[in-house]
């Protein structure tokens, strides 16, 4: 059984517009999947359905065997979602209070909460900012905080919606480094972006979306030729020899 199974997923807006049509794919444990496509291709709606925030018009989402539409609360413990706008997701008055928010909602004991918040601060390098107001953090730090928020409740899968948007070069490096570390420690990463060049060196699966449908999916190098027709352009298309050199990370 795959960690995430999506079968014939469709979503129609109340005005009748189709946002998703017959979307099916699977994600394996420990993989790094990139979902790309032009604006309005249904990527954000797809993530919200996977997180159980929106009920699909038809189709089925199973996260580690749990039906996301029927048991959204349980599904969210397994599937953490980092929103595109960090400010929407940050609710705490300080960095550590913000990380604690999700844990408190799951009802963990105070001892566990304290340890887990400390772990997340260390993991994301935010310990020096623990008592700082989140609004005073930089873009990259805010994004790392939202990753810490989501990872605090230990989901097996972490999905990120355009995590590099609005970030400067150091900000992109901080976030990318974090994601690669998470993936190396065994977490499944799903990343929605149209900025393929930043992430392809680390991804193993690519899903291309166009007009609410999956246009192509599979291993990165095999799927990449279809990218241009889905509104995703790359300055240079990598080969098996050059793809690893595309990384933005030095290590």
């Amino acid at each position: 059984m795959s960690q995430l199974e999506v079968r014939d997923l469709s979503y129609r807006f109340p005005d009748g517009t189709h946002a998703l049509q017959q979307v099916s794919f699977t994600v394996e444990e420990g993989s790094f999947t990139v979902i790309a496509g032009r604006n309005g291709s249904g990527k954000t709606i797809l993530l919200r359905i996977l997180n159980g925030l929106i009920k699909p018009t038809s189709g089925d989402v199973r996260i580690e065997g749990i039906d996301a539409a029927a048991h959204p609360y349980e599904a969210r413990k397994k599937f953490g979602l980092v929103f595109q706008q960090a400010d929407s997701q940050i609710v705490g008055q300080t960095v550590s209070r913000d990380i604690a928010f999700g844990l408190e909602n799951t009802g963990v004991s105070k001892e566990v909460l304290k340890v887990r918040v400390q772990q997340m601060l260390e993991m994301t390098g935010l310990t020096p900012h623990a008592h700082q107001r989140p609004r005073t953090l930089s873009g990259g730090e805010k994004r790392r905080l939202t990753i810490a928020d989501v990872m605090a409740v230990s989901p097996g899968i972490i999905a990120l919606d355009e995590p590099f948007s609005g970030l400067d070069y150091p900000g992109v490096l901080q976030v990318l480094h974090q994601l690669v570390q998470l993936n190396r420690s065994g977490h499944t990463v799903i990343l929605v972006t149209h900025d393929l060049e930043k992430v392809l060196a680390h991804a193993d699966t690519l899903i291309l979306m166009d007009q609410g449908r999956i246009a192509a999916q599979g291993p990165v190098l095999e799927t990449l030729p279809a990218a241009a027709s889905c509104g995703v352009r790359m300055r240079r298309v990598p080969t098996a020899e050059t793809i690893r050199d595309m990384t933005w990370l030095n290590d």
Partner: peptide, 11 residues
């Protein structure tokens, strides 16, 4: 957006 984010974080 905020209500989705809160729900996603188990509010």
């Amino acid at each position: 957006e905020i209500s989705y984010a809160l729900e996603s974080r188990g509010f």
